[in-house]
């Protein structure tokens, strides 16, 4: 797809840096361990700082639409394309595209995994999703997850 370029900020650099390296990196609470979305300076639940951690990239389609009238001239060549809300196994949702299959293969409840595609002009990699084969990866164990810190928010950045 010819993805429009996101309007990024310094605050979200780890997300885009991770995407450029093929990793879905999201804010996670250093206190309660919950994944948080959207980006914030502190956990809305417990108030502890958030840091950036790689997520499994696995999720489930919650709802989707097949877009027939494109959002821009650039995207007109890509219709029909699928816009979906994906519930990540980490418990947060991303709005994205399901690519690499016919729109008719997409349905609510379908398991998907992350992939990355470049945005137009900027080349910034954006996270999209592809359907998992029926025998593909299953839900990842929340408590078994390990993560590394890509970028820790420093006090002056909060």
């Amino acid at each position: 797809m010819r993805h429009p370029t996101p309007t990024t900020t310094d605050e979200t650099a780890p997300f885009w840096q991770g995407a450029g390296e093929g990793a879905l990196v999201l804010p996670r609470c250093t206190g309660c361990g919950r994944w948080r979305w959207p980006v914030a300076s502190a956990c809305p639940g417990c108030g502890a700082p958030l840091h950036w951690a790689p997520a499994s990239g696995l999720g489930t389609v919650l709802t989707f639409t097949v877009v027939h009238r494109a959002a821009s001239d650039a995207l007109a060549a890509d219709v029909p394309y699928v816009v979906a809300l994906v519930a990540l196994d980490e418990g947060v949702r991303l709005l994205s595209n399901v690519v690499g299959c016919a729109p008719s293969e997409v349905s609510a409840g379908r398991r998907v995994r992350v992939a990355f595609e470049p945005a137009e002009h900027s080349g910034i990699m954006v996270p999209v999703f592809v359907v998992c084969e029926p025998a593909g990866p299953t839900r990842c164990a929340e408590d078994g997850a390990t993560y590394v810190t890509y970028h820790r928010l420093e006090p002056h950045e909060r």
């Binding site: 979200t12 989707f64 639409t65 877009v67 959002a71 595209n97």
Partner: peptide
């Protein structure tokens, strides 16, 4: 959302369509 939604080409009807499908 200019950062986390725009890159995926959702129109306003597409946003309401996500709710309609659900």
């Amino acid at each position: 959302h200019p950062e986390f939604e725009v890159p995926f080409g959702p129109t306003v009807p597409a946003m309401f369509a996500l709710v309609a499908r659900a």
